[in-house]
């Protein structure tokens, strides 16, 4: 059987890409190995660990549970697009650095994407709400405490700088 291939157009972090992909290619593999945006990590390929979380039209999703071909016509955001063009870290990235919210850093991309979307939706979360929002992202290194601290601090920083 000839591979079933499709032409797709996607926008990732504001850049438009056109590619021809095999229908079975996972979106996570497409981002990492076709577009060479390897900042999105893969931990389980069954939607549990959360490392591959990206934003699809602004909403966090598991990129291992979507086919690349399904992303046709959609806007994606990944960790590579979080810092400003001049390299300034986003408030969530900055807070993770300041609070030692990462160790090996492998789960970090998924956490940044999940929490960036969450804090936009809920700018004044309680610690419990932060923990709930984080619960779909597994981290094996940190015990989560410093991540939670980072998110509380990021929320505060974002509130303080909001117009």
């Amino acid at each position: 059987m000839q591979p079933d291939r499709h032409e797709i157009s996607v926008s990732v972090n504001g850049t438009a890409y056109r590619r021809n992909v095999e229908s079975r290619m996972l979106l996570s593999d497409f981002l990492r190995h076709e577009l060479l945006l390897a900042g999105t990590h893969v931990g389980c390929e069954q939607g549990v660990c959360g490392a591959c979380t990206i934003l699809l039209d602004g909403a966090p999703i598991r990129s291992c549970l979507m086919l690349a071909v399904q992303a046709n016509g959609h806007e994606l955001s990944t960790i590579e697009g979080l810092a400003s063009d001049s390299g300034e870290l986003s408030p969530v990235q900055k807070a993770m650095h300041e609070h030692h919210g990462l160790q090996c850093g492998y789960c970090t991309p998924g956490i940044l994407m999940t929490m960036t979307a969450f804090l936009k939706q809920n700018p004044s979360p309680s610690e419990e709400e932060v923990r709930e929002a984080l619960s779909g992202n597994l981290c094996r290194c940190t015990g989560y405490q410093h991540i939670v601290d980072a998110m509380m601090a990021a929320a505060q920083a974002m509130r303080a700088s909001a117009p």
Binding site: E80, L89, H100, Y106
Partner: peptide
């Protein structure tokens, strides 16, 4: 604060599956 964070926070750290 850690020197290695910036690479990890911006998706620029090289992990094994990033070797192409």
């Amino acid at each position: 604060k850690r020197n290695e964070d910036r690479k990890l926070l911006t998706g620029q750290a090289l992990f094994i599956d990033d070797v192409e």
